[in-house]
Simulated assay, not measured.
Amino acid sequence: MNHSLRLLTFVGALGLLATSQSHAQAGPNAIIAHEGLATSAAIKPDSVFINPEVRPQFVGGDKAFMAYLSKNIRYPQQALQRRVSGRVYVNFILSAQGKVQDAHVISGPGSGLNDEALRLVWLMPPWEPGRSNGQPVRVACTVPIAFNSER
Rank of each mutant, 00 (worst) to 15 (best):
S132R: 00
R119T: 02
A26C: 15
N114E: 14
V54H: 04
V84D: 03
H104L: 14
S95I: 00
S107N: 11
A33W: 06
A33I: 06
D115H: 01
L37K: 07
I73R: 13
S70D: 10
Q97E: 00
V137H: 05
W127S: 03
N72V: 05
P125V: 02
P126L: 01
V105M: 14
G15R: 06
R83E: 14
Q135R: 12
V54N: 04
H3I: 14
V48T: 06
A67Q: 13
E53N: 03
A140R: 00
W122H: 15
L94M: 06
H104W: 10
R82N: 03
V137F: 10
E53F: 06
W122T: 13
K71F: 05
Q77A: 06
K44L: 10
L17N: 05
Q57A: 13
A13E: 07
E35P: 01
G110S: 12
L8E: 11
K99L: 06
D115R: 05
R138M: 07
Q57R: 09
Q78E: 10
Y89L: 12
A140V: 00
G134L: 12
P28V: 02
S40Y: 08
F65H: 05
A30T: 09
G108L: 15
F65V: 12
A117P: 05
A117I: 04
S47H: 09
Y75P: 03
Y75L: 08
W127T: 02
D62G: 07
S4V: 02
N133Q: 15
S22F: 01
F65E: 08
Y75K: 05
I31F: 11
A42S: 05
G98Y: 13
P45N: 15
L120S: 07
A41N: 10
A30E: 11
E128W: 03
P109E: 06
N133D: 12
G15L: 05
P129T: 12
G27K: 12
I93Y: 11
I32R: 03
V54S: 06
G61L: 01
P52S: 04
L5E: 01
W122F: 11
Y89N: 13
M124H: 11
N114K: 10
S132N: 09
